[in-house]
Each structure stands twice: as structure tokens, then as C-alpha cells.
């Protein structure tokens, strides 16, 4: 039983496929998918996270509809060579710190983010510790 919101999502923006309770989308179509969700009541960005699958990074976004108590999950996969994905921080201010943390720990570059720099580690730190191939130098 895929939710009604996923069907509407599929017509409006060309996302890859709907499976189970989440939607796989193309990274570049993330902003307009997010805007579409925001107009249909899913106006609460809950969580952004990423996981390192050796040849690609899988980013997971969850949104909530506070009125009808329903939430939606979007997933996008980004290649390891150029981990680029458009930033949501100009639509939701809440995404600002979470994207900076993913840039800091995972090395994913969010295009359009106004001050994308390390948030949790100090500036001289080389490498992104959350990646699978990170060797602990100290």
C-alpha cells in the first residue's frame, strides 16, 4: 500500500522509483521534490543523514506532516567521485547545521549552502572521519 503522497510525487517530479515506504529520487530533483512536499502539508524537515556504501553515498531525508501525523522518507544516492547534492538550507533553515555536519564528517558537498564549513571538527583536520576508508592518524 504505497501512500497517496508518493503517487502524486511521482507525476510531478521525475523520481526514480517508489518502493515500500520510501521514494528513491534523483539528486538533482531534490529541491523541487522537497518544495512539492512542503506545499502538500509535509512542511517539517525531520532528519538528514548519509551512509557510505563504498562506491556511492546514500542520503536519507525524512519529512513530517504535523497536521495529519504522517511522515515521508526520500532517499538519493550520490557517486563517490563528486558527492554533490543541492542544499535544502534555503528552503528549511533547520537543514543548515545537519548539512554542515554531513559535509564535515562524510564529505558530501551541498551546493547552494551559504557557509559550508566544518561544524564539529577543527579547521585543520584532514579527511572525513565518518567514511569507511578513514584511517585514524593520531
Amino acid at each position: 500500500m504505497t501512500k497517496k503522497i508518493y503517487e502524486e510525487l511521482q507525476e510531478n517530479c521525475e523520481c526514480a522509483r517508489i518502493c515500500g515506504d520510501y521514494a528513491e529520487i534523483v539528486p538533482d530533483s531534490l529541491p523541487d521534490c522537497a518544495l512539492f512536499l512542503k506545499d502538500n502539508g509535509y512542511d517539517y524537515l525531520d532528519m538528514i543523514t548519509a551512509s557510505d556504501h563504498i562506491d556511492e553515498f546514500i542520503l536519507t531525508y525524512t519529512f513530517k506532516n504535523l497536521k495529519d501525523k504522517d511522515d515521508v522518507m526520500l532517499r538519493a544516492s550520490v557517486s563517490r567521485e563528486n558527492p554533490e547534492i543541492p542544499s535544502l538550507s534555503n528552503i528549511w533553515i533547520g537543514a543548515d547545521f545537519q548539512e554542515r555536519e554531513l559535509y564535515d564528517l562524510m564529505g558530501i558537498i551541498f551546493t547552494g549552502h551559504n557557509n559550508l564549513k566544518r561544524i564539529v571538527l577543527w579547521d585543520g583536520f584532514e579527511g572525513h572521519p565518518q567514511r569507511k576508508d578513514y584511517k585514524n592518524v593520531a
Binding site: 564549513k117 577543527w122 579547521d123 585543520g124 583536520f125
Partner: peptide
């Protein structure tokens, strides 16, 4: 200032 603090942390480390 952050880069300056980063260098201090690195050479302290």
C-alpha cells in the same frame, strides 16, 4: 580565527 584555532589544535595534538 577558526583556521588559527585549527592550527593550535593540530600542533597541540
Amino acid at each position: 580565527a577558526d583556521a588559527y584555532e585549527g592550527n593550535i589544535v593540530e600542533d597541540l595534538r
